[in-house]
Protein backbone atom coordinates (compact mmCIF):
# COMPACT_ATOMS: atom_id res chain seq x y z
CA UNK A 1 0.00 0.00 0.00
CA UNK A 2 1.33 3.42 -0.92
CA UNK A 3 0.80 6.32 1.42
CA UNK A 4 -1.87 8.82 0.69
CA UNK A 5 -1.54 11.33 -2.10
CA UNK A 6 -3.11 13.92 0.13
CA UNK A 7 -0.19 13.71 2.55
CA UNK A 8 2.14 14.80 -0.25
CA UNK A 9 -0.18 17.70 -0.99
CA UNK A 10 -0.13 18.73 2.65
CA UNK A 11 3.66 18.67 2.60
CA UNK A 12 3.67 20.77 -0.59
CA UNK A 13 1.28 23.28 0.98
CA UNK A 14 3.51 23.42 4.04
CA UNK A 15 6.62 24.03 1.92
CA UNK A 16 4.80 26.72 -0.06
CA UNK A 17 3.68 28.59 3.06
CA UNK A 18 7.13 28.25 4.65
CA UNK A 19 8.73 29.58 1.48
CA UNK A 20 6.40 32.54 1.44
CA UNK A 21 7.10 33.22 5.11
CA UNK A 22 10.86 33.03 4.46
CA UNK A 23 10.53 35.62 1.69
CA UNK A 24 8.57 37.90 4.01
CA UNK A 25 10.69 37.45 7.13
CA UNK A 26 14.30 37.39 5.96
CA UNK A 27 16.23 40.58 5.45
CA UNK A 28 18.77 39.03 3.11
CA UNK A 29 18.30 38.63 -0.63
CA UNK A 30 19.96 35.23 -0.81
CA UNK A 31 17.73 34.00 2.00
CA UNK A 32 14.73 35.27 0.03
CA UNK A 33 16.04 33.32 -2.94
CA UNK A 34 16.04 30.16 -0.79
CA UNK A 35 12.41 30.86 0.06
CA UNK A 36 11.55 31.16 -3.62
CA UNK A 37 13.25 27.82 -4.29
CA UNK A 38 11.07 26.27 -1.57
CA UNK A 39 7.95 27.63 -3.26
CA UNK A 40 9.01 26.25 -6.63
CA UNK A 41 9.67 22.86 -5.05
CA UNK A 42 6.23 22.88 -3.49
CA UNK A 43 4.70 23.27 -6.95
CA UNK A 44 6.92 20.51 -8.30
CA UNK A 45 5.89 18.16 -5.54
CA UNK A 46 2.27 18.92 -6.35
CA UNK A 47 2.79 18.25 -10.04
CA UNK A 48 4.52 14.93 -9.45
CA UNK A 49 1.95 13.87 -6.87
CA UNK A 50 -0.98 14.76 -9.15
CA UNK A 51 0.60 12.79 -11.93
CA UNK A 52 -0.35 9.68 -9.93
CA UNK A 53 -3.99 10.57 -10.43
CA UNK A 54 -3.49 10.65 -14.20
CA UNK A 55 -1.00 7.90 -14.99
CA UNK A 56 -2.02 7.73 -18.64
CA UNK A 57 0.16 10.71 -19.56
CA UNK A 58 3.24 12.07 -17.88
CA UNK A 59 2.20 15.73 -18.13
CA UNK A 60 2.89 16.47 -14.48
CA UNK A 61 6.38 15.02 -14.52
CA UNK A 62 7.20 16.81 -17.76
CA UNK A 63 6.07 20.11 -16.27
CA UNK A 64 8.18 19.42 -13.18
CA UNK A 65 11.27 18.91 -15.35
CA UNK A 66 10.71 22.24 -17.08
CA UNK A 67 10.22 23.94 -13.73
CA UNK A 68 13.65 22.70 -12.67
CA UNK A 69 15.15 24.22 -15.84
CA UNK A 70 13.46 27.54 -15.17
CA UNK A 71 14.63 27.49 -11.55
CA UNK A 72 18.22 27.19 -12.76
CA UNK A 73 17.82 30.23 -15.02
CA UNK A 74 16.17 32.20 -12.26
CA UNK A 75 18.91 31.40 -9.78
CA UNK A 76 21.63 32.38 -12.25
CA UNK A 77 20.10 35.72 -13.21
CA UNK A 78 19.04 36.42 -9.64
CA UNK A 79 22.49 35.90 -8.21
CA UNK A 80 24.05 38.03 -10.94
CA UNK A 81 21.68 40.83 -9.97
CA UNK A 82 22.39 40.32 -6.26
CA UNK A 83 26.12 40.50 -6.90
CA UNK A 84 25.74 43.74 -8.82
CA UNK A 85 23.62 45.27 -6.10
CA UNK A 86 26.34 44.16 -3.75
CA UNK A 87 28.98 45.99 -5.73
CA UNK A 88 27.02 49.20 -5.44
CA UNK A 89 25.75 49.00 -1.89
CA UNK A 90 28.11 46.58 -0.14
CA UNK A 91 25.09 44.85 1.35
CA UNK A 92 22.49 42.28 0.44
CA UNK A 93 19.94 43.56 2.94
CA UNK A 94 17.02 44.99 0.96
CA UNK A 95 16.09 47.53 3.64
CA UNK A 96 19.45 49.21 3.35
CA UNK A 97 18.90 49.59 -0.37
CA UNK A 98 16.69 52.59 -0.65
CA UNK A 99 17.62 54.90 -3.48
CA UNK A 100 14.10 54.63 -4.89
CA UNK A 101 11.20 55.85 -2.83
CA UNK A 102 7.64 56.94 -3.27
Amino acid sequence: MMPSLQHLLYLAAFLFCTGLAVVMVKRNTIMMLLGIELMLNASNLNLVAFNRLYPASLDGQMFALFVIIVAVCEAAVGLAIVLRVYQHYQTSVPDEISELKG
Binding site: T29, I36, V77, I81, V82, V85, H88, I97, E99, L100
Partner: peptide, 12 residues
Protein backbone atom coordinates in the same frame (compact mmCIF):
# COMPACT_ATOMS: atom_id res chain seq x y z
CA UNK B 1 23.09 52.25 -8.28
CA UNK B 2 19.38 52.86 -8.67
CA UNK B 3 19.29 50.66 -11.77
CA UNK B 4 20.63 47.65 -9.92
CA UNK B 5 18.14 48.23 -7.14
CA UNK B 6 15.29 48.46 -9.63
CA UNK B 7 16.20 45.19 -11.25
CA UNK B 8 16.60 43.48 -7.85
CA UNK B 9 13.11 44.58 -6.78
CA UNK B 10 11.71 43.49 -10.12
CA UNK B 11 13.41 40.13 -9.75
CA UNK B 12 12.23 39.39 -6.20
Amino acid sequence: KAGSEGSLKYFL
